[in-house]
Amino acid sequence: SHELRTPLNAINGFSEIMAGEMFGPLGDQRYKGYAADILKSGQHLLSLINDILDMAKIEAGKHVLHYELVSLQEISEDAIRLMRGKVQEAGLVLSLEAADDVPEIEADHRGCKQVMLNLISNAIKFTPEGGEIVVRLTRPDVDYVRVAVADTGIGIAAEDLARLARPFEQVENQHSKTTQGTGLGLSLTKSLIEMHGGALAMDSEPGRGTTVSFDLPIHRSVPAAAEPQRKAA
Rank of each mutant, 00 (worst) to 15 (best):
V135H: 00
L188C: 08
V87Y: 04
V64Q: 14
I49M: 09
L216P: 00
N9D: 15
L216K: 01
G153V: 08
G24F: 04
L46E: 11
R220S: 09
S47I: 02
V212F: 02
T6H: 09
K231H: 03
E169C: 12
P206A: 13
G209C: 10
S76K: 02
D101Q: 13
L39F: 06
L26Y: 00
L216Q: 03
S71C: 10
P140L: 04
Y144G: 00
E16C: 05
A162C: 06
I49Q: 06
V147A: 02
L137R: 03
L200H: 03
S1V: 14
L117T: 13
T152Y: 05
I156N: 02
L8H: 07
R84I: 08
A158M: 12
P128Y: 08
K86E: 11
S191T: 04
P167Q: 08
M18T: 02
R139K: 15
I75V: 15
H109G: 06
M116K: 04
H175G: 00
L92Y: 09
G131C: 11
T211S: 12
A199T: 05
S204I: 04
A157E: 15
L53R: 07
Y34F: 15
Q73P: 00
G155T: 11
E89K: 14
P103M: 14
L161K: 10
T178F: 11
Y34W: 14
P206Y: 10
G33T: 03
E194C: 05
S221H: 11
A99L: 08
A225N: 07
E227Q: 09
L8I: 12
A150G: 09
L45E: 13
T189R: 03
G185S: 15
P103A: 14
A225W: 10
L137H: 06
N118I: 05
I218N: 08
T138I: 04
L92N: 05
I156Q: 02
G91S: 06
Q29Y: 03
M116W: 02
N118S: 14
C112I: 09
G197M: 04
H109A: 15
M83N: 05
V212W: 00
T178D: 10
E97G: 03
R163C: 03
A123N: 06
P167K: 05
N118P: 06
L117I: 15
V93N: 12
D151M: 13
H44V: 12
I105G: 01
V102E: 09
V147W: 00
N9L: 15
K113D: 02
L200C: 06
L184G: 01
A98K: 11
